[in-house]
C-alpha cells in the first residue's frame, strides 16, 4: 500500500498539498500517483508569477510510456518551482512528499483549502479506484 502522510491535504487527481504557516502551499503528486506512472523522466513546470485557476493544467509529468497533466488543486499564483526535478526527475519516484515537490503557490482563495481531502478520505478514494 502506498504512503499517505496524515499531515497533508489531497485532491482526487492525486496531488498533495502542504500548508505552511505563512500561507504558502507546496504541491506535488502522491506516492500512489508516482507508482502508477512508473519511472518519471521529465517534469514540465508552470511559469513563476502566473496565476492559475482551480482545475487548470499547471504542468506535465512524463514517464517513458505515459504523460499526465498536473492540475491546479486550488487557484493561486506560482511562487517557486522545484528546479531539482529538471536534472533529477527520478526524485518524484524516490521521495514524492519531500524532495520531489513540484511547485509552491500563494492561494487566491484560501477558503478553497477547506474543501480538500484529508489522508483518510484520499485513502478511501484510492482503494475505491483499485
Amino acid at each position: 500500500m502506498s504512503q499517505i502522510p496524515a499531515d497533508l491535504k489531497y485532491v482526487d487527481t492525486h496531488e498533495w498539498l502542504r500548508i505552511d504557516a505563512d500561507g504558502t502551499v507546496t504541491i506535488g503528486i502522491t506516492d500512489h500517483a508516482q507508482s502508477l506512472l512508473g519511472d518519471v523522466v521529465y517534469v514540465e513546470h508552470p511559469e513563476v508569477d502566473t496565476e492559475i485557476e482551480t482545475g487548470e493544467e499547471a504542468g506535465v509529468v512524463e514517464s517513458v510510456k505515459a504523460a499526465s497533466d498536473i492540475y491546479m488543486p486550488i487557484a493561486g499564483t506560482i511562487l517557486e518551482v522545484n528546479e531539482l526535478l529538471e536534472d533529477a526527475p527520478e526524485t518524484v519516484n524516490s521521495d514524492p512528499y519531500h524532495d520531489g515537490w513540484f511547485f509552491k503557490i500563494k492561494p487566491s482563495n484560501p477558503e478553497e483549502l477547506e474543501q480538500l481531502l484529508d489522508a483518510d478520505a484520499y485513502r478511501e478514494k484510492c482503494e475505491a479506484e483499485d
Partner: peptide, 12 residues
C-alpha cells in the same frame, strides 16, 4: 520522448 506522441497523449 514518446510521451509527446499521439499514441500516448492522444488529444494532447
Amino acid at each position: 520522448l514518446q510521451a509527446r506522441e499521439q499514441h500516448i497523449r492522444r488529444s494532447k
